[in-house]
Amino acid sequence: MHVYAAAASGGGSGSLSLLILTLPLLLLAYLIFSQRRRARREAKVQQELAEGDEVMTRAGMFGTITWLNGPVVGVQVAPGVVLTFDRRAVIPAVVPSSRDAGQAQDPDPDAPDDGRG
C-alpha cells in the first residue's frame, strides 16, 4: 500500500513542477511582449511630433515645440526661453491654455461674491 501512495504522489509532483516552471516563463514572455508594444507605440508618437505641439518632458516640464532637427527638438518653456531636448525626452501633453485656466478659476470676474469661496 505504501508503494502505491508513493507512486501516486510522485506522478502528481511532476505535473506540479512543470506548472511551477511554465508559469514564470509565460509571465516573463507577457511582460516582454507588453514592453515592446509600449516602446513601439511611444516611438510612433515621438515620430509624429510637430512644431507647435504642446509637450511635457519626462521630468515634468511643459512647453511648446518650436523646432525639430532629427533626434533633437527645441521646446519653448517660457517666452523667449527655448530649451533643447532629445526627441525621446518629450511626450505629447494636454496643457490647459491660460484662457481655459482663467475660466475655470472664475467664470465671471464681474459677478458678486456670494461668500462661498
Rank of each mutant, 00 (worst) to 15 (best):
W67A: 11
P109S: 02
R99D: 06
L16N: 02
D110C: 15
Q103W: 09
D110I: 06
Q103F: 10
G70F: 05
L49M: 00
L27T: 05
D86E: 13
T66R: 06
A78Q: 08
A93N: 00
L23K: 04
G60A: 11
P71I: 02
V3I: 09
T22C: 14
G60T: 04
S98H: 13
P109D: 02
L49Y: 05
V73L: 13
A59Q: 06
Q46P: 12
V82C: 05
R116S: 13
V82F: 00
A89T: 04
L31V: 10
E42R: 12
I65M: 15
G117W: 11
L68Y: 00
S97W: 00
Q105L: 15
V90H: 04
G14N: 12
D108L: 08
V75E: 07
S98Q: 11
R87Q: 07
D106C: 14
F33M: 05
D53Q: 03
L23M: 07
L26P: 06
D106H: 05
R40P: 01
G117R: 08
A6C: 10
Q35D: 10
A43R: 12
Y30E: 14
A89V: 01
S13L: 09
S15Y: 11
L18R: 08
S34K: 08
G52A: 05
A93K: 00
V95F: 00
A50P: 07
L28K: 05
R40W: 04
E48L: 07
S13A: 15
S13G: 04
S9W: 14
S97L: 12
T64N: 02
L16R: 06
A89L: 02
D100L: 00
V77M: 06
R116Q: 10
E51F: 00
M1A: 09
